[in-house]
Amino acid sequence: MAAIPALPRKYHGASIWALYALGFVPAISGFYLGATGQLPGNAIKEFEHLLGLWGLRFLIATLCITPIRDLFGINWIRYRRALGLLAFWYVLMHFSTYLILDKYLDFPTILADIAKRPFITIGMAALVMLVPLALTSNNLSIRRLGARWIRLHKLVYIIAAAGALHYALSVKVVGPQQSIYIGLVAVLLLWRPIRPRYNQWRRAQVGRPSFERAR
């Protein structure tokens, strides 16, 4: 099965740090282009949208880790924390850009936006839910919280759905791009209830002689 050669164990730690470094490249290059006036048209909005979109992409990548292991037997779980934290940082930067660069910290307008406009309310809720997940993303919290940690981190399903909805509701016409993100999130969420049955079936296959196994 394993078509991809496994990364030697001694590079695991370094590969996680490389992921963090790579993960921040879109934000840094976007900020540089925007600050130097090289983003076309509405630079602040372009940057704000870039950060939000990468937040959603990292959320989707986080949700891919489990199905990749289930379906292809590739275990990338060591990257899941980094992907989740990257999602958190991007969503936080997306919100900060809206707050500072876009709205100039005009709090009455910002609070009215959050209260009155459903797509902003939903986005804000997703950010708020991401905070406890980011705060408990360390080994100590995992040990201390035990089973409660797993329950808490199921919030990511709601967050991903909220993120995709926030994106779709923010545009004037829901186009192919929004549809792709909604579809990806939907498939990844639907995998969760299917997964126990699939894994059970898979284990039953392994117990039988190879000529009887389904392909």
């Binding site: 600050a35 130097t36 006036g37 509405n42 936006d113 406009r117 797509f119 509701l169």
Partner: peptide, 19 residues
Amino acid sequence: HPRWSQATENRIGEGGFFG
């Protein structure tokens, strides 16, 4: 607009983030 305020606007082409 139901999804955003029309009270202010962003003038395009006034240079980067801090114009």
